[in-house]
């Protein structure tokens, strides 16, 4: 398995929120790098800055200072509209909820992202079928999100995140709304995608089952890296 150590590079990253007189250092000087093919969990107590860090890595939020490099591109060099395009091409997202457009079917939700990239109809169709099959949703292509369980919806979200062939997938509490069966199912799928297709996943989670599966666990406390262990 090839490993590119500098897929994600976080350098001296700070994010400070000021709420009135009070300053909250949500991310307080973080340095880390994530390589290709890693299966990383970012953990820590509520409010430690997991979401804030993930959003800055994903180019959803701008740091107060410091830099995030993705595949060698410093995100601070990108304008707002370039950043949106960058996200579309390079990063797959799985959120805790509201991942899918309720008016689109599972297949449309997956192929939509490819349509934004201008992929051909045949390619979109073939790939979304393949991806939905990979996450165990063969035969459910024509279902709308409301016709799917929470776990199935999250699996569509994983398929959608992979549709654009991103460099890596960011998942913020992807299992928080799921029961244990759906959770282990989703984790198995992501672990398999990581094993078989070398897809890089970065999670923020407090879910012990996710932590157990992770190959690398980065623990945060008060916006700082407390520990970083590989297994």
């Amino acid at each position: 398995m090839t490993t590119k150590s500098n897929l994600v590079e976080v350098v001296n990253l700070y994010k400070t929120y000021s709420a009135g007189d009070l300053e909250v250092h949500a991310v307080d000087g973080i340095n880390l790098s994530i390589g290709e093919g890693e299966f990383t969990a970012i953990v820590g107590p509520s409010g430690c800055g997991k979401t804030t860090l993930l959003n800055m890595i994903g180019g959803l939020d701008r740091p107060t200072s410091g830099e995030v490099n993705i595949d060698g591109t410093p995100l601070s060099s990108l304008s707002e509209s370039k950043l949106i395009d960058f996200r579309l091409k390079k990063i797959g997202f799985v959120f805790q909820a509201y991942n899918l457009l309720p008016v689109l079917t599972a297949e449309e939700n997956t192929s939509f992202i490819m349509q934004l990239q201008g992929k051909s109809k045949e390619e979109r169709r073939a790939r979304s079928h393949q991806l939905l099959k990979n996450v165990g949703l063969e035969g459910r292509e024509k279902n709308k999100p409301t016709q799917l369980s929470g776990g199935q919806q999250q699996r569509v979200a994983v398929a959608r995140a992979l549709a654009s062939r991103p460099s890596f997938v960011l998942a913020d509490e992807p299992t928080a709304n799921l029961d244990s069966h759906s959770t282990s199912n989703l984790l198995d799928i992501m672990a398999r995608l990581n094993e078989e297709e070398n897809i890089t996943f970065v999670f923020a989670t407090h879910d012990q089952r996710v932590i157990d599966k992770a190959k690398r666990v980065i623990t945060l406390e008060d916006g700082k890296v407390l520990s970083d262990e590989r297994r």
């Binding site: 959803l60 395009d85 579309l88 997202f93 959120f95 934004l116 995140a161």
Partner: peptide
């Protein structure tokens, strides 16, 4: 709001 936020997050640009 959330849906639109999600769309923009995953790469739907402003014009679209």
């Amino acid at each position: 709001k959330r849906e639109l936020g999600m769309l923009m997050a995953v790469g739907m640009n402003k014009s679209r």
